[in-house]
Computed example of a mutant assay.
Amino acid sequence: MSPKVLVINSGSSSIKYQLVEVDSGEALATGLVERIGQPVGAVRHDGPDGRTSLEQPVPDHEAGIATILELFATHGPKLDASELTAVGHRVVQGGDRFAGPALVDDAVEAAIDDLSTLAPLHNPPNLAGIRAARRAFPTLPHVVVFDTSFHSTLPPAAYTYAIDQEVASLYSIRRYGAHGTSHRYVSHRAAELLGKDPADVNVIVLHLGNGASATAVRGGVSVETSMGLTPLEGLVMGTRSGDIDPAVVFHLQRVAGMSTDELDDLLNRRSGMLGLSGSSDMRDVHDAVEAGDERARTALQVYYHRIRAYVGAYYAQLGRVDAIAFTAGIGENDDIVRINSLAGLERLGIAVDAERNEGRKKDECVISPDGSEVTVFVIPTNEELEIARQAVELVAQQG
């Protein structure tokens, strides 16, 4: 019988979940609990009975997990602990302590809590979901998969910042990256689609969503990635600035009198496409361009410029690129972004076929012309399946 894993992705006010049959890769059920802690929560469960939607109070993550169990019991499929191999959990920040998935115990929980200083918006709610799920399934193994783990293979030249190394060591300042679970899944899937072993393939993955990152993958392992100590560095994102001269922070402190919290809010929540164009939704930006909005046009040019710069840099780091893969919400659905992000790179063997590229892509596909030196893919990411696979592998290793 194919192993089944309940995958939980717990956010500050939401819990995403999926029941995965690992061998087939099929999602037997998916769902989302939103607005946790607000007067009325929103719940969605997609199972064998179709979609069930509810509005009811969900005061905390404990109540969220209880609601999920009720949905499985009422609307299926049956969630019998004896039929589950594990419960898999996504955690954003594993620091330099976790180079792979970990079996949850009290010490691992404490480590996730300690690492919250590096991901204060993500690790605490991730941990809340883990604790609630452990109470709900006390006899099952719980496995955490860290977004940072795939990037633990970065060489020192890639992860080291050029600051005083005593300060860096004391405060754990280095590049950790993010979206690693997605980058691993997509890069390995690209190798499979090329009919090759991941160890023989070099891939640049462009994970473009509200949060966005690029990763250079050599022989199946991450060797460079755009996000840094936090998910703020790198590409232009929905509300995050991406790369910026750090002296901008000092300038705004001195000249504008902005506090640390105000600067954090500016760079994480009021920058990126929102700051450039007035909207963080790429669909709105495209509509504005069509209406003649020059501010929106410039915003898109900045967005493309940054992606091309990273693709070029990673091509130089890898020396040879076999594939480029677009993934995540924008990468999978925005044909305008895909074709413009790689425009002008034909001398590197990189091209996009306009007809193949057209429209949203729900399935894996090639969007480069036949015979291209570099194959350009669109590969829908599947972080839940990747988490489930890693959970099953770890449980099997533990015997």
Score class of each variant (00 low, 15 high):
Ala343Trp: 10
Phe150Lys: 05
Arg240Gly: 00
Val392Ala: 03
Leu232Asp: 05
Thr230Tyr: 02
Arg44Phe: 10
Val395Asn: 05
Val285Asn: 01
Ser53Gly: 04
Asp293Asn: 14
Ala214Glu: 01
Ala343Arg: 15
Leu267Asn: 10
Ser277Leu: 03
Met237Phe: 05
Gly278Ile: 05
Ile367Phe: 02
Gly180Pro: 08
Pro120Met: 04
His61Ile: 07
Asp147Leu: 06
Arg218Met: 12
Arg44His: 13
Pro3Cys: 03
Ile330Arg: 07
Leu208Ile: 06
Val186Ser: 08
Val311Ser: 06
Ala73Gln: 14
Arg174Asp: 11
Pro39Leu: 08
Ser222Leu: 11
His305Val: 01
Thr375Met: 02
Pro3Gly: 03
Val249Ala: 08
Ser182Ala: 13
Arg306Pro: 11
Glu290Arg: 02
Thr327Ala: 01
Arg269Ile: 00
Leu252Asp: 03
Ala178Cys: 15
Leu69Ile: 08
Leu6His: 08
Asp245Pro: 10
Phe250Ser: 06
Ser279Tyr: 11
Gly275Lys: 07
Lys362Glu: 15
Lys78Ser: 15
Glu109Lys: 14
His61Tyr: 08
Tyr315Glu: 11
Ser226Glu: 10
Val302Ile: 13
Gly211Trp: 13
Gly257Ser: 13
Gly257Lys: 14
Leu263Gly: 05
Val321Met: 12
His179Ala: 05
Asp335Thr: 02
Ala119Thr: 09
His45Glu: 09
Pro155Ser: 12
Arg360Gly: 05
Thr67Ala: 12
Thr239Leu: 00
Ser271Met: 02
Met273Arg: 01
Ala73Pro: 05
Ala102Tyr: 00
Leu140Gln: 08
Ile244Pro: 10
Ser279Glu: 08
Ser82His: 12
Asp353Leu: 09
Lys4Asp: 04
Ala136Leu: 01
Leu229Tyr: 09
Glu290Phe: 00
Pro124Val: 13
Arg218Gln: 15
Asp363Gln: 14
Ala313Leu: 06
Gly11Ala: 07
Arg270Thr: 04
Met237Asp: 04
Ala291Arg: 10
Val285Gly: 02
Ala216Leu: 12
Gly209Pro: 05
Leu348Pro: 03
Ile330His: 10
Gln397Arg: 15
Ala313Ile: 06
Ala328Gln: 10
Glu62Ile: 02
Pro101His: 10
Ser116Asp: 01
Ser10Pro: 06
Gln56Ala: 14
Ala214Leu: 03
Gly177Val: 07
Pro125Thr: 00
Gly37Gln: 06
Val201Tyr: 12
Val378Leu: 11
Asn202Pro: 06
Glu83Leu: 11
Ala296Met: 01
Leu154Gly: 07
Gly371Tyr: 03
Ile204Met: 02
Asp96Ser: 15
Ala296Pro: 00
Asn9Asp: 08
Ile36Gln: 06
Thr148Ser: 07
Asp265Lys: 13
Lys361Leu: 07
Val248Glu: 06
Val311Tyr: 14
Pro124Gln: 05
Asp197Val: 03
Ser182Met: 08
Glu109Met: 14
Gly272Gln: 00
Val205Phe: 04
Ile350Trp: 13
Gly238Leu: 04
Asp80Cys: 07
Val285Trp: 01
Ile68Leu: 12
Gly41Ile: 13
Leu274Trp: 02
Gly329Cys: 08
Ile307Glu: 09
Ala111Thr: 14
Asp46Glu: 14
Thr148Met: 06
Glu192Val: 12
Glu224Met: 00
Phe377Cys: 12
Asn382Lys: 15
Gly349Ala: 11
Arg297Asn: 08
Asp197Leu: 01
